[in-house]
Nucleic acid binder design. Structure first.
Length: 416
RNA sequence: GCGGGCGUAGCUCAACUGGUUAGAGCGCCUGGUUGUGGUCCAGGAGGCUGUGGGUUCAAGUCCCAUCGCUCGCCCCA
């Protein structure tokens, strides 16, 4: 047992959970296509530098939270902790700049070496959507529209809240940062230990501290609004205008921040209170500085990512499955016909399983407990007539149906 | 990396202050004779009590360590 357990923070997804997971992915892919995003599938691991360059050498993230290892040829590799860096790398590797704007969407496993919590695993899965090459707020709005429609399609419109903020352009952001450092430095003795460390490494993060003492200081703290230049103000106004035009409810959240320097302008998160401390279900923002920081020509970008497991957990109900039919061949003599019949029904899209084993009583019993809708009995009597006995497991009614008419018969019942 | 709670069949849980072959329900399998279900009856499989040490005549029960789960903190790209 001990050796057969999964690695810490990893897990098997099966049964109803797998159905929910699949439903989230299906909804995302359908909508990504409708919004005219191209699918992009990037490797699950990259050279460590790809992530290190985007995150900065000193951050906790690099030093203790990436799944890094050396391969046999001595290369330092890292299992991707997020999608964006890989997409940015792919954009550069493939010379996609030549094609102008790119709207890219993908999903898959991500890896972070951290202590598991509710809805937070070492291997988890994300949906991701990015627009690269558009400097205008239209891209931000389109991404939020996409995200909102996805959440609404999943039945989550009422259980999440959109939090929206701006970090301003680099000039505004820097001015604000300086003001914040000045302010908190003056109150250094009242800050929590954690926030004193943040003062050095990541002052914006003090704004979303959970420490009550820190929070008490926020009231008097400088507000970003006062430091936004005209360009930044206009940009944010345009994003808000778009979101409002679409009728998407949101709250302006001045404490919603991003720590890294390449983030600019828009930051947004869809948050639920149903998942404890891990309430963000979908988050994103603009990262105009990222591609330049990776070594490419300065290129604007916006995107978001969403945790598939978290979305799956929040689904109000299990996804519907198509009615299940079970073919029950009775006796050796009908085996060959059972195979061809099953093949034809499946080719026509009927969801069908075959139960070969046990007496009929056992088989009907099993079928009922599986929640099957129809039993198809094929014995020698039926074979002689080129028919099956079709039994409705809900009503108990049954009658003989010619094989040729089966597909139509099953489909008409599907709609009941 | 730090702190709190918890680990007994697939699942939900029992086992008096340490005391003999660790039990129950659900689920699963088989049977109750030939092709008609969810009920009922009978039987069966399935546990090195997470793992490794220690204390004791005796450990599921006490102690230590470790692994895992869980709720938070740090972090959240």
């Amino acid at each position: 047992m001990s050796r057969l357990q999964p690695v810490r923070g990893t897990r098997d997804i099966l049964g109803d959970e797998a159905r929910r997971f699949g439903h989230v992915v299906d909804s995302f892919r359908r909508l990504a296509d409708v919004y005219a995003f191209e699918e992009i599938i990037t490797p699950v691991f990259e050279f460590t530098d790809v992530f290190r360059r985007t995150l900065g050498e000193t951050s906790d993230v690099v030093t203790k939270e990436m799944y890094s290892f050396e391969d046999r040829s001595g290369e330092m590799l890292t299992l991707r902790p997020e999608y964006t860096a890989g997409i940015a790398r792919a954009w550069l590797s493939n010379g996609l700049a030549q094609q102008g704007t790119a709207k890219l969407a993908g999903f898959g496993p991500m890896f972070r070496y951290e202590r598991p919590q509710k809805g937070r695993y070492r291997q988890f899965h994300q949906l991701d959507a990015e627009i690269i090459g558009v400097a205008e707020p239209t891209a931000d709005i389109e991404l939020i529209a996409f995200a909102w429609q996805l959440l609404a399609d999943l039945g989550l419109a009422d259980s999440v809240t959109l939090h929206l903020n701006t970090l301003g352009d680099p000039e505004s952001r820097q001015a604000y940062r300086t003001a914040l450092v000045d302010y908190f430095s003056a109150h250094r003795d009242k800050l929590s230990d954690d926030s004193r460390a943040r003062l050095e490494k990541n002052p914006l993060r003090i704004l979303d501290s959970k420490d009550p003492g820190d929070r008490a200081l926020l009231g008097e703290a400088p507000k970003l609004d006062a430091y936004l230049n005209a360009r930044s103000r206009d940009f944010y106004a345009a994003v808000r205008g778009g979101v409002e035009a679409l009728g998407i409810p949101y709250i302006h959240d001045p404490h919603l921040v991003r720590g890294l320097d390449y983030y600019t302008h828009t930051a947004f998160e869809f948050i639920t209170d149903a998942l404890g401390a891990q309430g963000t279900v979908l988050g994103g923002g603009r990262y105009d500085g990222l591609i330049a920081q990776m070594g490419g020509a300065p290129t604007p970008g916006v995107g978001w990512a969403a945790g598939i497991e978290r979305l799956a957990m929040l689904l109000p109900e299990s996804p519907a499955v198509a009615p299940l039919s079970i073919l029950m061949p009775l006796g050796e003599a009908v085996a060959a016909r059972a195979w061809t019949l099953a093949r034809d029904l499946r080719a026509a899209g009927v969801r069908l399983d075959i139960d070969w084993k046990g007496n009929l009583k056992k088989r009907l019993n099993r079928a009922a407990r599986r929640g099957a809708r129809f039993a198809l009995l094929l014995g020698e009597d039926e074979l002689a007539k080129d028919a099956v006995t079709l039994r409705d497991l809900e009503s108990g009614a049954q009658r003989e149906v010619p094989m040729a008419a089966l597909v139509e018969e099953l489909e008409s019942h599907d709609r009941v």
